[in-house]
């Protein structure tokens, strides 16, 4: 296990970690979509950020992923919707996929991946 020296900035910004995680999440079978965080949408609507709200636009690709670098490694929180497979199994697969992707592409330790399933397609 490697830890960053305290005087060193993390080499990978949290937005990039979130993007790597989001890509891994969406590739897991049974994941329908990420569920954007409320705060992220509120932020995107505030003031001059209005220009980024495009007609027909969709939430940014990392909305629904929260990435934080802490002393013991990367902490990731993922909110998603599931369809066609048991939610519990999909969520556990997401944990593994995200931890693997972030670790292999950044070299950073992944301390925690929590997953919240906010929506399940009842017809599947």
């Amino acid at each position: 296990m490697t830890t960053l020296p305290s005087d060193e900035r993390p080499a990978v910004p949290e937005t990039v970690l979130a993007a790597i995680a989001a890509e891994a999440v969406l590739a897991v079978p049974g994941v329908d979509r990420l569920e954007p965080r409320f705060g992220a949408l509120l932020g995107s609507l505030a003031g001059s950020a209005w220009a980024h709200v495009q007609p027909g636009g969709v939430p940014g690709p990392t909305a629904g992923v929260d990435a934080e670098v802490q002393a013991d490694g990367v902490h990731l929180g993922i909110d998603l919707a599931v369809s066609g497979r048991p939610a519990a199994a999909v969520a556990v697969a997401v944990q593994q996929a995200v931890a693997d992707a972030v670790r292999s592409r950044t070299g950073l330790d992944v301390a925690r991946v929590t997953v919240a399933v906010l929506d399940v397609d009842p017809a599947s």
């Binding site: 925690r112 929590t114 919240a116």
Partner: peptide, 10 residues
């Protein structure tokens, strides 16, 4: 890796 939760409403 951590805990997996589901919305009671879902």
């Amino acid at each position: 890796h951590g805990v997996v939760t589901i919305s009671a409403q879902a």
